[in-house]
Design a protein around this nucleic acid. Structure first.
Lengths: 241, 241
DNA sequence: CGGAAATTTGAAATCGCTCAATGATAGTGG
DNA sequence: CCACTATCATTGAGCGATTTCAAATTTCCG
């Protein structure tokens, strides 16, 4: 629930309503497809464990990794407005998801309006993350794009497990990094090499060690955004569930 | 209101609540800044008339045009979760905006929960639009990116004024197109030339005529998304305001 | 252990960028 | 109304970052 409570603290009733909306729990193995792009949308997912990718296919087979869903994120939401899913969902690691049928999601807005508002605000955060990724892909060099992805993952994991340190379990193939950064896989390989040569990161098997986060941040020019806590404009909304 | 009612038809009470949330109306001249990136967020805007750009500055002065807000869109929403505005808002044409203070926006979720849900769903649409733009910028060539922008604008204007035809009033400088597509302004110029040479578009002063929309769509590989109308999963939510 | 997928490296091609300069257009103030 | 200026559009030339193609190695999974 970390993502939701980042903003305001949900009441017990609100948390209960959310738990109530969850129908079942599913497990996926690494690289397993969760939802196909273009399929019919009946439910969304709460990521309990693992990494999930949101992937769009365009331009004769080329793929864009548009979003990394981590534990605490709601996956599949963007597609709910359309007849066909805009993004495919893929388990990037072994993953555990809770299923939330759309009709139960809709009821949350009636039963717990403030929770609905929190979901709304969280979706605005997601829009900003997409805009940031767009700005990186649109306006910076290959090494900056890869650095930005590293910074993004580093920061998000830091929130999830503050004791995690600088060693990141890295399940993304260079092909997937390429799909996220808008580069070719081969150039991603060379770019990782350059980051290592510069002493910014090191590879330890399937892990990546962040050696110099300040330099990575400076190189990537990736903005750090501060979330508003308990904003005044939200105080007037009743938290009655 | 077109954007909201695209999904479900709001009741009179819901429309009244939304009107009530609007505080004042403001006019901006072409190229005037509406909101600075990094400023404090106290309100959002409903675009009544004109085009508004959402711009992110990154990477030592380079800018990304992340979103075109057209009449009926809510501008400034993405920033509400943060202490500082993530995007700057710029009037691309002369523009008229209604101001909605954040506390009144928040109250909508309590007073008209179904309207809150509609705002939520509309935000998911916006996420998909961003993902589509990201996929275009990340995965396609210069000519495809410019074609995709043309198709995007053409489709959105077609919804706003179905009688509009193939002649588009084009207020975007090549510099701004470049900021949207992740290209240099000079290359945008050459790319427009190529599109004209191929007979896909023609320029008539400050207007652009779309000569061959099918070929533009095929070239750009830009997906057409169908909005879900009156979805079953929403029927159970009360429309009482 | 076998086979598929992922990584790595080299060489050549190309797309798009930068630099530089010119021409066109529009807004401003006298 | 016109000169002035800033912005925008256009064109050429050369460069450089990234892609593509090809092939060797390594790693991973069953």
């Amino acid at each position: 629930m970390r993502r939701l409570s980042e903003f305001v603290t949900p009441t017990g009733d609100e948390l209960a309503a959310l738990e109530d909306a969850k129908q079942s729990r599913r497990e996926y193995r690494r690289n397993q497809s969760i939802t196909l792009e273009g399929s019919c949308v009946r439910e969304v997912y709460f990521v309990v464990e693992g990494w999930v990718g949101g992937v769009l296919e365009v331009n004769s087979g080329r793929k864009q990794l548009a979003k990394l869903y981590l534990p605490g994120d709601f996956a599949g939401l963007p597609s709910i407005a359309f007849t066909n899913a805009a993004e495919g969902l893929v388990a990037i690691t072994r993953a555990t998801l809770d299923v939330i049928p759309l009709n139960r999601l809709a009821l949350l807005f009636e039963q717990a309006p403030r929770l609905g508002l929190m979901l709304f605000v969280t979706s605005q955060q997601e829009r900003v993350m997409l805009m940031d990724q767009l700005a990186v892909v649109g306006q910076s060099s290959a090494i900056q794009r890869v650095a930005a992805l590293l910074v993004h993952v580093y920061r998000r994991l830091s929130v999830l497990s503050p004791e995690g340190g600088n060693l990141i379990d890295w399940p993304l193939s260079q092909q997937r990094v390429a799909q996220g950064a808008g580069l070719s896989a081969i150039h991603v390989n060379r770019t990782f090499g350059e980051l290592i040569r510069r002493g910014l990161i090191a590879r330890e098997g399937k892990r990546i060690r962040i050696l110099d986060i300040e330099s990575l941040v400076e190189l990537s020019a990736f903005p750090e955004r501060r979330t508003l806590k308990e904003p005044r404009w939200l105080a007037s909304v009743s938290s009655k569930g």
